[in-house]
Design a protein around this nucleic acid. Structure first.
Lengths: 225, 225
DNA sequence: ACTTTACAACGTTAACTAACGTTAACGAGT
DNA sequence: ACTCGTTAACGTTAGTTAACGTTGTAAAGT
Protein backbone atom coordinates (compact mmCIF):
# COMPACT_ATOMS: atom_id res chain seq x y z
CA UNK A 1 0.00 0.00 0.00
CA UNK A 2 1.37 3.37 -1.02
CA UNK A 3 1.68 6.14 1.54
CA UNK A 4 -1.00 8.77 1.86
CA UNK A 5 -0.09 12.23 0.53
CA UNK A 6 -1.21 15.18 2.64
CA UNK A 7 -1.06 18.81 1.63
CA UNK A 8 -0.44 21.05 4.62
CA UNK A 9 -0.87 24.80 4.20
CA UNK A 10 0.32 26.72 7.24
CA UNK A 11 2.12 30.05 7.31
CA UNK A 12 3.55 29.84 10.82
CA UNK A 13 6.91 28.22 10.20
CA UNK A 14 7.36 26.55 13.57
CA UNK A 15 3.85 25.11 13.77
CA UNK A 16 4.01 23.92 10.19
CA UNK A 17 7.27 22.16 10.84
CA UNK A 18 5.99 20.38 13.92
CA UNK A 19 2.79 19.20 12.25
CA UNK A 20 4.69 18.05 9.17
CA UNK A 21 7.14 16.04 11.24
CA UNK A 22 4.49 14.50 13.44
CA UNK A 23 2.46 13.41 10.46
CA UNK A 24 5.53 12.01 8.75
CA UNK A 25 6.37 9.86 11.77
CA UNK A 26 2.86 8.37 11.40
CA UNK A 27 3.67 7.33 7.88
CA UNK A 28 2.13 10.13 5.85
CA UNK A 29 3.89 12.01 3.08
CA UNK A 30 3.48 15.71 3.84
CA UNK A 31 3.84 18.60 1.40
CA UNK A 32 4.09 21.88 3.25
CA UNK A 33 3.06 25.18 1.67
CA UNK A 34 3.55 28.45 3.54
CA UNK A 35 0.80 30.41 1.81
CA UNK A 36 -2.36 29.93 -0.24
CA UNK A 37 -0.79 30.47 -3.64
CA UNK A 38 1.94 27.94 -3.01
CA UNK A 39 -0.62 25.52 -1.68
CA UNK A 40 -2.67 25.68 -4.89
CA UNK A 41 0.50 25.17 -6.87
CA UNK A 42 1.54 22.16 -4.79
CA UNK A 43 -1.95 20.72 -5.03
CA UNK A 44 -1.77 20.71 -8.82
CA UNK A 45 1.65 19.09 -8.76
CA UNK A 46 1.44 16.37 -6.13
CA UNK A 47 -2.25 15.43 -6.18
CA UNK A 48 -2.67 14.89 -2.44
CA UNK A 49 -5.58 12.84 -1.09
CA UNK A 50 -6.33 15.13 1.81
CA UNK A 51 -5.85 18.83 2.58
CA UNK A 52 -5.04 20.48 5.90
CA UNK A 53 -5.44 24.23 5.42
CA UNK A 54 -4.86 27.11 7.75
CA UNK A 55 -7.69 29.60 7.30
CA UNK A 56 -5.58 32.73 7.86
CA UNK A 57 -2.76 32.75 5.35
CA UNK A 58 -0.96 35.36 3.25
CA UNK A 59 -1.74 35.74 -0.48
CA UNK A 60 -4.77 33.48 -0.32
CA UNK A 61 -6.85 32.38 2.67
CA UNK A 62 -7.87 28.80 3.29
CA UNK A 63 -11.54 29.23 2.38
CA UNK A 64 -10.80 30.83 -0.96
CA UNK A 65 -8.23 28.17 -1.68
CA UNK A 66 -10.71 25.44 -0.77
CA UNK A 67 -13.30 26.87 -3.12
CA UNK A 68 -10.84 26.93 -5.99
CA UNK A 69 -9.71 23.37 -5.40
CA UNK A 70 -13.32 22.21 -5.09
CA UNK A 71 -13.90 23.39 -8.65
CA UNK A 72 -11.48 20.72 -9.77
CA UNK A 73 -12.16 18.09 -7.16
CA UNK A 74 -15.55 17.93 -5.55
CA UNK A 75 -14.70 15.14 -3.15
CA UNK A 76 -11.30 15.74 -1.62
CA UNK A 77 -11.49 15.95 2.20
CA UNK A 78 -10.42 19.27 3.71
CA UNK A 79 -9.53 20.03 7.33
CA UNK A 80 -9.43 23.71 8.22
CA UNK A 81 -7.16 25.00 10.99
CA UNK A 82 -8.65 28.09 12.62
CA UNK A 83 -7.64 30.61 15.24
CA UNK A 84 -9.81 30.54 18.34
CA UNK A 85 -11.02 34.06 17.59
CA UNK A 86 -12.92 32.89 14.54
CA UNK A 87 -16.57 32.28 15.26
CA UNK A 88 -17.79 28.77 14.85
CA UNK A 89 -20.77 29.76 12.71
CA UNK A 90 -18.50 30.90 9.91
CA UNK A 91 -16.79 27.56 10.04
CA UNK A 92 -19.86 25.46 10.25
CA UNK A 93 -20.81 26.60 6.80
CA UNK A 94 -17.97 24.39 5.72
CA UNK A 95 -18.60 21.65 8.23
CA UNK A 96 -20.29 19.18 5.91
CA UNK A 97 -19.52 16.78 3.12
CA UNK A 98 -15.83 16.04 3.03
CA UNK A 99 -14.93 18.96 5.31
CA UNK A 100 -13.91 19.25 8.92
CA UNK A 101 -12.28 21.91 11.08
CA UNK A 102 -10.01 22.14 14.07
CA UNK A 103 -9.56 25.09 16.42
CA UNK A 104 -6.08 26.21 17.35
CA UNK A 105 -4.47 25.24 19.57
CA UNK A 106 -5.09 21.59 18.84
CA UNK A 107 -3.31 18.41 19.83
CA UNK A 108 -1.71 16.25 17.19
CA UNK A 109 -3.91 13.39 18.37
CA UNK A 110 -7.01 15.33 17.41
CA UNK A 111 -5.63 16.05 13.98
CA UNK A 112 -4.65 12.44 13.37
CA UNK A 113 -8.08 11.21 14.44
CA UNK A 114 -9.79 13.52 12.00
CA UNK A 115 -7.45 12.69 9.16
CA UNK A 116 -8.02 8.99 9.66
CA UNK A 117 -11.77 9.31 9.88
CA UNK A 118 -11.89 11.29 6.64
CA UNK A 119 -9.58 8.78 5.01
CA UNK A 120 -11.90 5.95 5.99
CA UNK A 121 -14.76 7.65 4.21
CA UNK A 122 -12.63 8.03 1.11
CA UNK A 123 -11.65 4.38 1.27
CA UNK A 124 -15.26 3.27 1.51
CA UNK A 125 -16.18 5.45 -1.40
CA UNK A 126 -13.32 4.34 -3.59
CA UNK A 127 -13.80 0.67 -2.78
CA UNK A 128 -16.89 0.94 -4.87
CA UNK A 129 -14.40 2.17 -7.41
CA UNK A 130 -16.48 0.96 -10.34
CA UNK A 131 -17.89 4.04 -11.97
CA UNK A 132 -21.06 3.51 -13.96
CA UNK A 133 -21.03 5.10 -17.38
CA UNK A 134 -24.17 4.08 -19.25
CA UNK A 135 -23.93 0.31 -19.69
CA UNK A 136 -20.22 0.32 -18.93
CA UNK A 137 -18.34 -0.13 -15.70
CA UNK A 138 -15.27 2.03 -15.57
CA UNK A 139 -12.47 1.29 -13.12
CA UNK A 140 -10.04 4.17 -13.06
CA UNK A 141 -7.23 2.57 -11.08
CA UNK A 142 -7.43 -0.69 -12.99
CA UNK A 143 -7.89 1.26 -16.25
CA UNK A 144 -10.61 -1.06 -17.42
CA UNK A 145 -13.94 -0.67 -19.18
CA UNK A 146 -16.37 -3.54 -18.71
CA UNK A 147 -19.34 -4.08 -21.01
CA UNK A 148 -21.38 -7.25 -20.47
CA UNK A 149 -18.48 -9.32 -19.16
CA UNK A 150 -16.26 -8.03 -21.95
CA UNK A 151 -13.34 -6.14 -20.47
CA UNK A 152 -11.37 -3.64 -22.47
CA UNK A 153 -8.06 -2.38 -21.19
CA UNK A 154 -7.52 1.36 -21.35
CA UNK A 155 -4.19 3.14 -21.50
CA UNK A 156 -3.25 5.60 -18.81
CA UNK A 157 -4.14 8.64 -20.88
CA UNK A 158 -7.46 7.19 -21.98
CA UNK A 159 -8.37 6.43 -18.37
CA UNK A 160 -7.37 9.90 -17.15
CA UNK A 161 -9.38 11.58 -19.85
CA UNK A 162 -12.45 9.41 -19.31
CA UNK A 163 -12.21 10.00 -15.58
CA UNK A 164 -12.42 13.74 -16.00
CA UNK A 165 -15.16 13.54 -18.61
CA UNK A 166 -17.17 11.38 -16.25
CA UNK A 167 -16.55 13.81 -13.37
CA UNK A 168 -18.41 16.42 -15.38
CA UNK A 169 -20.88 14.20 -17.21
CA UNK A 170 -23.61 16.07 -19.04
CA UNK A 171 -21.64 19.25 -18.55
CA UNK A 172 -18.91 20.79 -20.63
CA UNK A 173 -15.40 19.75 -19.66
CA UNK A 174 -13.13 22.66 -20.49
CA UNK A 175 -10.50 21.98 -23.15
CA UNK A 176 -7.73 24.12 -21.76
CA UNK A 177 -8.36 22.85 -18.24
CA UNK A 178 -7.91 19.24 -19.24
CA UNK A 179 -4.94 20.02 -21.46
CA UNK A 180 -3.18 21.84 -18.65
CA UNK A 181 -4.11 19.17 -16.14
CA UNK A 182 -3.06 16.11 -18.14
CA UNK A 183 -0.54 17.46 -20.65
CA UNK A 184 0.89 20.42 -18.76
CA UNK A 185 0.09 22.99 -21.39
CA UNK A 186 -2.48 23.63 -24.09
CA UNK A 187 -0.34 24.12 -27.18
CA UNK A 188 -1.31 23.03 -30.67
CA UNK A 189 0.29 19.60 -30.61
CA UNK A 190 -1.11 18.58 -27.25
CA UNK A 191 -4.53 19.68 -28.43
CA UNK A 192 -4.23 17.40 -31.46
CA UNK A 193 -3.01 14.60 -29.21
CA UNK A 194 -6.08 15.02 -27.06
CA UNK A 195 -8.29 14.84 -30.16
CA UNK A 196 -6.76 11.47 -30.89
CA UNK A 197 -7.67 10.21 -27.43
CA UNK A 198 -11.21 11.51 -27.71
CA UNK A 199 -11.46 9.54 -30.91
CA UNK A 200 -10.12 6.41 -29.20
CA UNK A 201 -12.55 6.76 -26.30
CA UNK A 202 -15.49 7.17 -28.68
CA UNK A 203 -14.57 3.88 -30.30
CA UNK A 204 -14.25 2.06 -27.00
CA UNK A 205 -17.59 3.45 -25.82
CA UNK A 206 -19.55 2.77 -28.97
CA UNK A 207 -21.30 -0.39 -27.70
CA UNK A 208 -23.75 1.78 -25.76
CA UNK A 209 -25.31 4.13 -28.25
CA UNK A 210 -26.71 6.31 -25.49
CA UNK A 211 -23.20 7.40 -24.60
CA UNK A 212 -21.81 10.23 -26.61
CA UNK A 213 -18.82 12.50 -26.36
CA UNK A 214 -20.10 15.72 -27.87
CA UNK A 215 -17.74 18.46 -28.90
CA UNK A 216 -18.57 22.02 -27.93
CA UNK A 217 -16.59 23.96 -30.46
CA UNK A 218 -14.04 26.24 -28.84
CA UNK A 219 -14.88 25.15 -25.29
CA UNK A 220 -14.48 21.44 -24.76
CA UNK A 221 -16.37 18.17 -24.57
CA UNK A 222 -19.57 16.90 -23.02
CA UNK A 223 -19.93 13.27 -21.99
CA UNK A 224 -23.59 12.40 -22.40
CA UNK A 225 -24.88 9.36 -20.50
CA UNK B 1 -26.55 11.79 -8.02
CA UNK B 2 -25.31 15.35 -7.86
CA UNK B 3 -26.37 17.54 -4.98
CA UNK B 4 -29.13 20.10 -5.34
CA UNK B 5 -28.05 23.73 -5.39
CA UNK B 6 -30.21 26.15 -3.43
CA UNK B 7 -29.95 29.91 -3.47
CA UNK B 8 -30.86 31.39 -0.09
CA UNK B 9 -31.38 35.14 0.14
CA UNK B 10 -31.78 36.28 3.73
CA UNK B 11 -30.42 39.46 5.30
CA UNK B 12 -30.65 38.43 8.95
CA UNK B 13 -27.25 36.89 9.52
CA UNK B 14 -28.17 34.47 12.29
CA UNK B 15 -31.32 33.16 10.63
CA UNK B 16 -29.56 32.79 7.31
CA UNK B 17 -26.76 30.85 8.89
CA UNK B 18 -29.10 28.46 10.67
CA UNK B 19 -31.16 27.77 7.58
CA UNK B 20 -28.04 27.29 5.47
CA UNK B 21 -26.59 24.80 7.94
CA UNK B 22 -29.79 22.87 8.36
CA UNK B 23 -30.20 22.55 4.63
CA UNK B 24 -26.60 21.51 4.22
CA UNK B 25 -26.94 18.73 6.76
CA UNK B 26 -29.79 17.44 4.58
CA UNK B 27 -27.40 17.23 1.67
CA UNK B 28 -28.17 20.43 -0.20
CA UNK B 29 -25.56 22.85 -1.46
CA UNK B 30 -26.58 26.28 -0.20
CA UNK B 31 -25.44 29.63 -1.58
CA UNK B 32 -26.28 32.38 0.85
CA UNK B 33 -26.79 35.98 -0.27
CA UNK B 34 -27.39 38.72 2.28
CA UNK B 35 -29.28 41.09 0.00
CA UNK B 36 -31.21 41.18 -3.26
CA UNK B 37 -28.38 42.42 -5.43
CA UNK B 38 -25.99 39.77 -4.22
CA UNK B 39 -28.69 37.17 -4.72
CA UNK B 40 -29.14 38.11 -8.38
CA UNK B 41 -25.41 37.99 -8.84
CA UNK B 42 -25.13 34.56 -7.21
CA UNK B 43 -28.06 33.32 -9.27
CA UNK B 44 -26.25 34.14 -12.51
CA UNK B 45 -23.06 32.49 -11.30
CA UNK B 46 -24.17 29.24 -9.69
CA UNK B 47 -27.37 28.39 -11.54
CA UNK B 48 -29.31 27.05 -8.55
CA UNK B 49 -32.34 24.82 -9.08
CA UNK B 50 -34.46 26.39 -6.37
CA UNK B 51 -34.68 29.82 -4.71
CA UNK B 52 -35.52 30.64 -1.09
CA UNK B 53 -35.98 34.40 -0.90
CA UNK B 54 -36.67 36.68 2.00
CA UNK B 55 -39.22 39.28 0.94
CA UNK B 56 -37.82 42.13 3.02
CA UNK B 57 -34.19 42.67 2.06
CA UNK B 58 -31.88 45.64 1.57
CA UNK B 59 -30.99 46.88 -1.95
CA UNK B 60 -33.61 44.72 -3.62
CA UNK B 61 -36.66 43.04 -2.13
CA UNK B 62 -37.57 39.42 -2.79
CA UNK B 63 -40.49 40.14 -5.10
CA UNK B 64 -38.52 42.43 -7.38
CA UNK B 65 -35.69 39.94 -7.43
CA UNK B 66 -38.10 37.13 -8.30
CA UNK B 67 -39.53 39.13 -11.19
CA UNK B 68 -36.08 39.77 -12.60
CA UNK B 69 -35.05 36.15 -12.34
CA UNK B 70 -38.34 35.05 -13.89
CA UNK B 71 -37.46 37.06 -16.97
CA UNK B 72 -34.62 34.62 -17.51
CA UNK B 73 -36.15 31.49 -16.09
CA UNK B 74 -39.90 31.01 -15.99
CA UNK B 75 -39.86 27.66 -14.27
CA UNK B 76 -37.47 27.86 -11.35
CA UNK B 77 -39.31 27.18 -8.09
CA UNK B 78 -39.31 30.06 -5.62
CA UNK B 79 -40.14 29.96 -1.92
CA UNK B 80 -40.74 33.35 -0.31
CA UNK B 81 -40.00 33.93 3.36
CA UNK B 82 -42.31 36.61 4.73
CA UNK B 83 -42.78 38.43 8.01
CA UNK B 84 -46.08 37.68 9.71
CA UNK B 85 -47.12 41.31 9.28
CA UNK B 86 -47.42 40.95 5.52
CA UNK B 87 -50.94 40.36 4.36
CA UNK B 88 -51.63 37.14 2.60
CA UNK B 89 -53.37 38.86 -0.33
CA UNK B 90 -50.09 40.37 -1.50
CA UNK B 91 -48.61 36.93 -1.42
CA UNK B 92 -51.41 35.18 -3.19
CA UNK B 93 -50.43 36.89 -6.38
CA UNK B 94 -47.31 34.81 -6.19
CA UNK B 95 -48.74 31.65 -4.74
CA UNK B 96 -49.13 29.71 -7.96
CA UNK B 97 -47.03 28.00 -10.58
CA UNK B 98 -43.60 27.20 -9.24
CA UNK B 99 -44.01 29.48 -6.23
CA UNK B 100 -44.69 28.93 -2.59
CA UNK B 101 -44.40 30.99 0.57
CA UNK B 102 -43.65 30.51 4.21
CA UNK B 103 -44.52 32.87 7.06
CA UNK B 104 -41.90 33.68 9.64
CA UNK B 105 -41.34 32.20 12.08
CA UNK B 106 -41.27 28.80 10.41
CA UNK B 107 -39.86 25.42 11.39
CA UNK B 108 -37.09 23.88 9.31
CA UNK B 109 -39.33 20.86 8.78
CA UNK B 110 -41.86 23.03 6.99
CA UNK B 111 -39.20 24.48 4.74
CA UNK B 112 -37.72 21.09 3.91
CA UNK B 113 -41.14 19.68 3.05
CA UNK B 114 -41.84 22.53 0.67
CA UNK B 115 -38.43 22.34 -0.95
CA UNK B 116 -38.78 18.63 -1.54
CA UNK B 117 -42.24 18.91 -2.98
CA UNK B 118 -41.12 21.58 -5.43
CA UNK B 119 -38.04 19.54 -6.31
CA UNK B 120 -40.18 16.52 -7.10
CA UNK B 121 -42.05 18.56 -9.65
CA UNK B 122 -38.82 19.74 -11.19
CA UNK B 123 -37.35 16.26 -11.23
CA UNK B 124 -40.35 14.87 -12.99
CA UNK B 125 -40.09 17.62 -15.52
CA UNK B 126 -36.36 17.36 -16.11
CA UNK B 127 -36.08 13.60 -15.86
CA UNK B 128 -38.24 13.50 -18.89
CA UNK B 129 -35.63 15.99 -19.95
CA UNK B 130 -37.32 15.99 -23.30
CA UNK B 131 -38.85 19.38 -23.90
CA UNK B 132 -41.97 19.27 -26.02
CA UNK B 133 -42.01 21.74 -28.88
CA UNK B 134 -45.06 21.11 -31.03
CA UNK B 135 -44.61 17.63 -32.47
CA UNK B 136 -40.92 17.65 -31.67
CA UNK B 137 -39.04 16.41 -28.64
CA UNK B 138 -36.09 18.59 -27.81
CA UNK B 139 -33.29 17.38 -25.56
CA UNK B 140 -31.01 20.23 -24.66
CA UNK B 141 -28.13 18.29 -23.11
CA UNK B 142 -28.13 15.68 -25.86
CA UNK B 143 -28.63 18.41 -28.45
CA UNK B 144 -31.24 16.39 -30.30
CA UNK B 145 -34.57 17.08 -31.98
CA UNK B 146 -36.83 14.06 -32.38
CA UNK B 147 -39.74 14.01 -34.82
CA UNK B 148 -41.59 10.71 -35.24
CA UNK B 149 -38.59 8.51 -34.45
CA UNK B 150 -36.41 10.64 -36.70
CA UNK B 151 -33.62 12.17 -34.66
CA UNK B 152 -31.75 15.22 -35.85
CA UNK B 153 -28.54 16.24 -34.14
CA UNK B 154 -28.25 19.92 -33.34
CA UNK B 155 -25.04 21.87 -32.93
CA UNK B 156 -24.26 23.53 -29.64
CA UNK B 157 -25.30 26.97 -30.84
CA UNK B 158 -28.53 25.71 -32.36
CA UNK B 159 -29.38 23.93 -29.12
CA UNK B 160 -28.61 26.98 -26.99
CA UNK B 161 -30.72 29.24 -29.18
CA UNK B 162 -33.66 26.85 -29.33
CA UNK B 163 -33.49 26.39 -25.57
CA UNK B 164 -33.89 30.09 -24.95
CA UNK B 165 -36.60 30.46 -27.58
CA UNK B 166 -38.50 27.61 -25.95
CA UNK B 167 -38.05 29.19 -22.51
CA UNK B 168 -40.04 32.17 -23.79
CA UNK B 169 -42.36 30.37 -26.17
CA UNK B 170 -45.20 32.52 -27.46
CA UNK B 171 -43.41 35.55 -26.06
CA UNK B 172 -40.75 37.78 -27.54
CA UNK B 173 -37.18 36.71 -26.89
CA UNK B 174 -35.09 39.86 -26.82
CA UNK B 175 -32.42 40.11 -29.53
CA UNK B 176 -29.77 41.89 -27.52
CA UNK B 177 -30.37 39.66 -24.51
CA UNK B 178 -29.70 36.50 -26.45
CA UNK B 179 -26.77 38.02 -28.33
CA UNK B 180 -25.11 39.07 -25.09
CA UNK B 181 -25.92 35.77 -23.41
CA UNK B 182 -24.67 33.45 -26.17
CA UNK B 183 -22.23 35.55 -28.17
CA UNK B 184 -20.97 37.93 -25.50
CA UNK B 185 -21.89 41.10 -27.35
CA UNK B 186 -24.48 42.35 -29.81
CA UNK B 187 -22.38 43.79 -32.60
CA UNK B 188 -23.31 43.67 -36.28
CA UNK B 189 -21.52 40.45 -37.16
CA UNK B 190 -22.86 38.45 -34.24
CA UNK B 191 -26.32 39.67 -35.08
CA UNK B 192 -25.96 38.36 -38.63
CA UNK B 193 -24.56 35.11 -37.27
CA UNK B 194 -27.64 34.74 -35.12
CA UNK B 195 -29.85 35.33 -38.15
CA UNK B 196 -28.15 32.39 -39.80
CA UNK B 197 -28.93 30.16 -36.84
CA UNK B 198 -32.55 31.29 -36.78
CA UNK B 199 -32.69 30.28 -40.41
CA UNK B 200 -31.17 26.88 -39.64
CA UNK B 201 -33.61 26.27 -36.79
CA UNK B 202 -36.56 27.16 -39.00
CA UNK B 203 -35.43 24.51 -41.46
CA UNK B 204 -34.99 21.85 -38.79
CA UNK B 205 -38.41 22.67 -37.33
CA UNK B 206 -40.32 22.78 -40.59
CA UNK B 207 -41.87 19.29 -40.28
CA UNK B 208 -44.46 20.72 -37.87
CA UNK B 209 -46.15 23.58 -39.67
CA UNK B 210 -47.67 24.82 -36.42
CA UNK B 211 -44.25 25.82 -35.20
CA UNK B 212 -42.99 29.17 -36.32
CA UNK B 213 -40.15 31.43 -35.36
CA UNK B 214 -41.61 34.86 -35.94
CA UNK B 215 -39.45 37.94 -36.15
CA UNK B 216 -40.50 41.01 -34.22
CA UNK B 217 -38.70 43.73 -36.09
CA UNK B 218 -36.31 45.62 -33.86
CA UNK B 219 -37.01 43.51 -30.76
CA UNK B 220 -36.38 39.84 -31.31
CA UNK B 221 -38.08 36.53 -32.06
CA UNK B 222 -41.18 34.69 -30.93
CA UNK B 223 -41.35 30.90 -30.98
CA UNK B 224 -44.95 29.97 -31.72
CA UNK B 225 -46.03 26.45 -30.79
C1' DA C 1 -54.84 60.31 -48.76
C1' DC C 2 -52.17 57.68 -51.68
C1' DT C 3 -47.95 56.46 -53.86
C1' DT C 4 -43.14 56.48 -54.19
C1' DT C 5 -38.71 56.39 -52.39
C1' DA C 6 -35.18 55.18 -49.22
C1' DC C 7 -33.08 52.56 -45.97
C1' DA C 8 -32.44 49.75 -42.14
C1' DA C 9 -33.67 45.18 -40.41
C1' DC C 10 -34.02 40.64 -41.45
C1' DG C 11 -33.82 35.96 -44.63
C1' DT C 12 -31.31 32.75 -47.12
C1' DT C 13 -27.65 30.58 -49.38
C1' DA C 14 -23.05 29.84 -50.04
C1' DA C 15 -18.06 30.64 -49.38
C1' DC C 16 -14.67 30.46 -46.06
C1' DT C 17 -11.76 29.24 -42.09
C1' DA C 18 -10.31 27.55 -37.83
C1' DA C 19 -11.42 23.76 -34.93
C1' DC C 20 -12.05 19.14 -34.69
C1' DG C 21 -12.12 13.80 -36.41
C1' DT C 22 -9.82 9.87 -37.90
C1' DT C 23 -6.32 6.94 -39.40
C1' DA C 24 -1.77 5.87 -39.91
C1' DA C 25 3.14 6.59 -39.47
C1' DC C 26 6.63 7.49 -36.24
C1' DG C 27 9.66 7.16 -32.23
C1' DA C 28 10.96 6.66 -27.40
C1' DG C 29 10.93 3.48 -23.80
C1' DT C 30 10.60 -1.16 -22.15
C1' DA D 1 9.16 -6.89 -30.76
C1' DC D 2 5.76 -4.41 -28.41
C1' DT D 3 3.20 -0.71 -26.25
C1' DC D 4 1.97 3.90 -25.67
C1' DG D 5 1.79 8.45 -26.76
C1' DT D 6 2.98 11.99 -30.23
C1' DT D 7 3.15 13.83 -34.78
C1' DA D 8 1.62 13.96 -39.45
C1' DA D 9 -1.63 13.90 -43.14
C1' DC D 10 -5.91 14.44 -44.84
C1' DG D 11 -10.92 14.62 -44.23
C1' DT D 12 -14.97 16.84 -42.02
C1' DT D 13 -17.75 20.21 -39.69
C1' DA D 14 -19.41 24.27 -36.93
C1' DG D 15 -19.61 28.86 -36.89
C1' DT D 16 -18.52 33.28 -39.08
C1' DT D 17 -18.47 36.31 -42.89
C1' DA D 18 -20.05 37.68 -47.32
C1' DA D 19 -23.28 38.44 -50.92
C1' DC D 20 -27.59 39.24 -52.48
C1' DG D 21 -32.56 39.11 -51.85
C1' DT D 22 -36.80 40.40 -49.21
C1' DT D 23 -39.69 42.98 -46.08
C1' DG D 24 -41.22 46.62 -42.99
C1' DT D 25 -41.63 51.38 -42.04
C1' DA D 26 -41.20 56.11 -42.12
C1' DA D 27 -40.45 60.18 -44.72
C1' DA D 28 -40.82 62.56 -49.14
C1' DG D 29 -43.31 63.42 -53.04
C1' DT D 30 -47.69 63.82 -55.60
Amino acid sequence: MTKVKILLAEDEASLGMIVKESLETRGFIVFHAINGEEALDLYQKVNPVILVLDVMMPLKDGFTLAKEIRLENKNIPIIFLTAKSQTSDVLEGFNHGGNDYLKKPFSMEELIVRINSLLNRIELASNLEEIIIGDYLFNYTKQTLIYLKETVQLTHREAQLLFHLQQKKNEVLDRTFILNKLWGNDDFFNARSMDVFISKLRKKLKSDSNIQIINVRGFGYKLIC
